[in-house]
Structures are given as C-alpha cells and as structure tokens.
Design a protein around this nucleic acid. Structure first.
Lengths: 344, 344
DNA sequence: CGACGTTGTAGCAACGTTGTAAATAGCAGA
DNA sequence: TCTGCTATTTACAACGTTGCTACAACGTCG
C-alpha cells in the first residue's frame, strides 16, 4: 500500500505531473475542466504531498526545534503545548529536545540540529553561557525564551523578570510582611539573578533590610528543592513570615514543608510562586503567583522565527535584534491573603 | 552560510561524492588514505547529512508521531518526555500532535500523517472508536497506549486497568471504608469503563453494595471536573467516606473541593487517584494513587513500532498482534492513611 | 492577415542522498 | 606480457517535488 504521488494522480487525471502540482499549489491558470479532473483524482488516490520531498526542493525543512529542560516540568509542558499550536499556524512541526538543563546537552542540541533539519529553534537555556553561542550558531534563526543572557545577539522573548519579582515581593510587603525570604538563588541561572534583583528592589522600596540568610539557593527548581529550602528557613531562629519562590514548583515544595512543620499558610507564612502553572490554582492553599502570558510568549517566539526565516529567504534586510517583553499579572490567591471564596 | 553537502566535502577531499557517502556510511572498502582525506574534509566543512534527502532516498522519515490530548496535562507531559527519550535511542525524532481529546482532531491526526511523514505513531486516543481505524489506517505501524478499544487490530500497551482499579478500591475497603464513591465514569472513554469495572469488582469482593449515585461521571478529566464531581458527592444526604478518582487531576480537584467544605482528608474522606503524576506526591495531603510504570509504557511502545517497522522493511513475517501489560503499583500516601512521616 | 498578449500545459533540471552497476586500478599467477 | 581476480572508485539514476522555461492554443488589435 504505497502512498500516492503526483505522478499517480497525473496518470489517473490524464494530465502532466506539473499540472497536478499546479492545482495542488493553487496556481490560477488551469482549465476548469482539468482542475476538476485533477481534484477528483486527488481524492480518489488520497494524495498527500510528500513533505520531505517538497522541503528538499524548497530548501525548507518544515520543522522548528524547541529546546527545553524537561517536558515533565509543568511549566515547560504547558509552554510546549502552546508552541506546538502556534507553530502549526505557520505550517511548522515542532521537534522537542530535552536537555535536563545541562550545559552539555544544550550544546549538543544546538550543534546536532543543522539548517537542513530545522528552520529555526526556540531555546529555553538554563546553563548555556554567552560564549557557547559563538561557535554553536547553527545557521538558523534562534529565539531565547525566558532567560536573559546579555551580550548574546539572539532574539529574546520574556516577561520583565525584575519587575515581576518586584511586584510579587511588593505584594508581600503590602500585606504587612516584614521578614520576607526568597528561594531559588542560583549563580548559573540567568532568570535567578533577575528575580533576586527584583526581590531586593522590592525590599528596598518597602524599607526592609535584606538578610542574607533569608535568600536560600536552589540547585534545581523542583518541588523537592523547594521543600528542602523551606525546611532550612523554618530551622532559623527567627523564622520568615513570607517567602518568594522563584517558580511554582519550589513554592509547592515550600507549601509542603510548611504543612509538615505545622506552619499555617498564609497566617504564619505567606508564599508566592512564579509561573502560574495549572497546579498552583488547585494547591491547598492555592498559590499566589506571577502569571506570565505563556500564550503570548509562545506565539511571539514562533512569529520571530517566522519573520527571520522569510526575511532570509527573500533577501530582505533582517530586522533588528528583538528583545520583546510579554505581559504578566500577579495572580493573588490563598497562599498570601487566605481563603476568600470557593473557586468556581 | 549554506550547509555543507556531500558534494562540498567531495570537492575538498578530491574524491567523488559517492566515496564520501561511503565513508559517512561506514562502507568497508575505502583506501585508508582517502578515508583520512574525507574525514578531514568532513570536519573542515562541518558536514551534517541532510536527513530529509536521506529519508527521501531511503523511504524512511526518521519520525514517529505521538498523538495525545494535550501536553499541559501532567500525565501526558511526563509520558511525552519518556517517549522522546526512548525514541532517541532508536534514532527517531518525535512529532507531537495535540488533539484536545476530540474525535475530530484524533481523526485528522491519523490521516494527515501519511507514511512519507512518519515511520509510525503512538496513540493515546480518548474518543476514537473501532470503526474510525478502519478507513484511517495510515499505512504505518500504530501502537495504542493506555486505552483499550477492543476489536481493533492494533498493538496495545497499558497496565491492567481493571486490576489497578480493583487494587485501589480494595485498599479503600481494607482501611475500613464502607461507602466508596468513584469519579470519572464516562461512556466515551475506554479506560473509564475498565476502571469502573475494577471499582465494581472490588466493591463486590468487599461485600459492599453498589450505590449508583456514588459513581459520578466526568466529561473531561481535569482538576475542575474533579472538584465539581466531589461537590456533588458532598451534597448527598449520605456522604461517601472514600472516593476513587479515575485520574490524579480529578483527585486533586476532589481534594480541593473537600478542603473548601471543611471535609478532612483522610479522616472524613479517603481519596485515591490514578497516574502517580509528580504533583500527587506533593499535594496536601499527598495522594494515594496507582503508579503505572510510565517508562516501561514509553519504551515498550517505541520498541513495538521499531519491531514492526524493521519487519516491514525486511519482508519478514510480521509478529502477532501485541497486547502488552506493563507493571503498576499502588502508591500509598496520606490521602488514605494519613500522615506517617515527613517525606524525604 | 500578421504580430502580440493571454491563458494553459508540459518538459527539464535540480534539491542531497544512496543503491546499482559499471569502470578502473592493483596485483598474483600463468 | 597477458589473464583473471579483488579492491576501490565512480557515473548514473532515482526518491517526489517545484521553479524555470518553452511552447501551444487562442483571441485581439492594428
């Protein structure tokens, strides 16, 4: 049961291969009668274009890569789903590459995918540094999402991490918390530095002194790390009355650790997360969190690649380096202000 | 900055295109000196084979499809990650198709991917019925995961859903619950019927009468649906003292609804989920759940496609229809037996 | 009535790769 | 030196598609 080709259709319709191709591609000048015959033959044979061959001819691959740490991380699962949907609108399929957040695998992801494999790539790098990009540029448009590695001439889409963190911590100060901790410090993560900066800015704005030991680092950003970090904070002689976690998973872990110690949230301890993963709306208590517009991130990233890739094809002047900030909101829930009403 | 082709390498090395191809493909009879020259040229040019062209020539695509409802659903995010990893071991890239669980999009996913696009597909159909497969067979090996639609001649990988459900509900009976509800009944989902069957079997085994109104249907299997269904159960004059949810998301929603009503879990109400998503280990209380071996599912599914696809290539007799059951375990946590110790 | 534009069709080549088969080189034995 | 191998290399075609170009048919207009 071989797949039908243009040739099969042409024979059946009694025209040339090229005419069938013209019909398939919507070329205007085809005699109505022939068009009809071809269309019938197309249906009769169940013809589907061979994407590989078409792309070989056109010099496009029809694929973009999405390089991320792990699909099982809710934020990336959600993002990947949105990227796939956005890519489909441009006729692209998405190849997902999981790196576990390691520099090594991020490097190989970049090198192994040449221009004949993908038309572009969306990266969510955790560990990749500026110099890595120099030798690794794979000859296709790249877009970074969610991380700000300065000095890299690559398009970038993200929310304003500093402002978002400042907003989150500002909220904690606004509800009267004076001893606000943070979980997620990490010298190897670009976003961590930005969120820490926002945290500090908010403390300063609120006239609160920064206490070094209240900023607990996290190597990974999983639930387990959040729980461990929270435990450390609860072991302090002077406990914090609020904690800003650099992502929702850390916050979920923190919630868990608080519950294990009998610490009430938000009465004894307010918690804010970051990412607004679906899980955060249903945790107990539900989690106040920074809600980035993930759909906007996905669509913007795909559009940028699309723009660059058609620019290149048409020899147009490439547009300037983009650094696009997408909207975000602070989603206020029980973990900071307590129970108000049952969710719908 | 065009990508290097075999021709470029050949010119640089001073040999024919075919010789370069032979070196690349590990053909034995190449003069050592030429091999060396070619290898140098390969490095110098940074040659990467054009996968599209190679597959066009070989009649393979190098891709398998993974058809699932939505990546943002934790279970599918986790599964997808494992499938990608398993596929890589066989040299495959994975194309993910999201269907939202609708019959329509599941149908188009099957038809739009012909044999020139993919070498096989792994399906997690929600709504597809037996007759759909008849006309849709895309000419490539298919494997279904997680759903049992009988009478369809397609390989199948899943845990024993009936036994798993029976185990879960048996556990509830074993801890002394007498009025055990279920959430997730749904006539359009294959797994729902099996889990309901296991639920009933366990009730019978425990000598408990089945109460129709304790089996609440769920259209979707999201957290919201679980919360709604739980609300209905808590509105009953005679409340259940336990509930078996057909997946973890429903259970998370149920937990939430219970908390909103001030119902204590597990004291007043024990809850069991299904899937062992990472989230379930950190919910408050943590969730007792059926833990399928997802890695085994992913690897088995990929292996089956690999087996069929090489069989077909070598004209070997295809092996018999496979219906493989992968292991599962009951993961007992706080939502049924209460707090024992803090998690590590 | 011939030149010309418009509409419709088809042949050829090429995208980068590899299987087939044919060509060449090297070398031992006659 | 010539034959007959084997070892090595190469030309060619083909996978399915589309851009380019040539060409045919038809009508219009000066």
């Amino acid at each position: 049961m071989r797949a039908a080709t243009l040739k099969d259709v042409a024979v059946l319709a009694g025209v040339s291969v090229k005419t069938v191709s013209n019909v398939v591609n919507g070329y205007a000048f085809v005699k109505p009668e022939n068009r009809r015959k071809v269309e019938e033959a197309l249906i009769a044979t169940g013809y589907r274009p061979n994407i590989g061959a078409r792309n070989l001819r056109r010099g496009k691959t029809g694929f973009i890569a999405l390089v991320l740490p792990e699909l099982s991380i809710p934020y990336f699962g959600e993002l990947a789903g949105l990227v796939i949907t956005a890519a489909q609108a441009h006729g692209w399929n998405v190849l997902i590459e999981q790196t576990q957040g390691t520099r090594d695998r991020e490097r190989t992801a970049l090198t192994s995918m040449g221009p004949h494999m993908i038309d572009g790539a969306i990266l969510s790098p955790q560990a990749l540094s500026a110099e890595d990009f120099a030798d690794l540029a794979p000859g296709v448009p790249l877009v970074m999402v969610g991380e700000h590695a300065v000095d890299v001439p690559i398009d970038h889409v993200a929310i304003d991490n500093v402002l978002a963190a400042r907003t989150a911590v500002g909220h904690l100060a606004a509800i009267g918390r004076r001893r606000i901790a943070s979980i997620g410090r990490n010298p190897h993560r670009g976003t961590a530095a930005l969120r820490l900066e926002g945290y500090r800015a908010a403390l300063a704005e609120a006239g609160l002194a920064e206490d070094e030991e209240l900023s607990v680092p996290a190597l990974e950003y999983h639930r387990r790390d959040g729980a461990q970090a929270m435990s450390r904070l609860l072991d302090l002689p002077e406990r914090p009355d609020a904690v800003f976690c650099f992502n929702d998973l850390l916050a979920i872990g923190a919630l868990r650790a608080a519950a294990d110690r009998g610490v009430r949230v938000p009465e004894d301890l307010a918690i804010v997360g970051f990412d607004n993963t679906e899980e955060s709306a249903y945790s107990i208590p539900s989690l106040t969190t920074i809600a980035p517009d993930k759909k906007a991130i996905a669509e913007t990233a795909v559009s940028l690649i699309h723009g660059r890739s058609t620019d290149a094809a048409e020899n147009a002047t490439p547009f300037d380096l983009q650094d696009i900030q997408t909207p975000f909101a602070l989603e206020i829930r029980e973990s900071t202000i307590g129970r108000t009403r049952a969710p719908a």
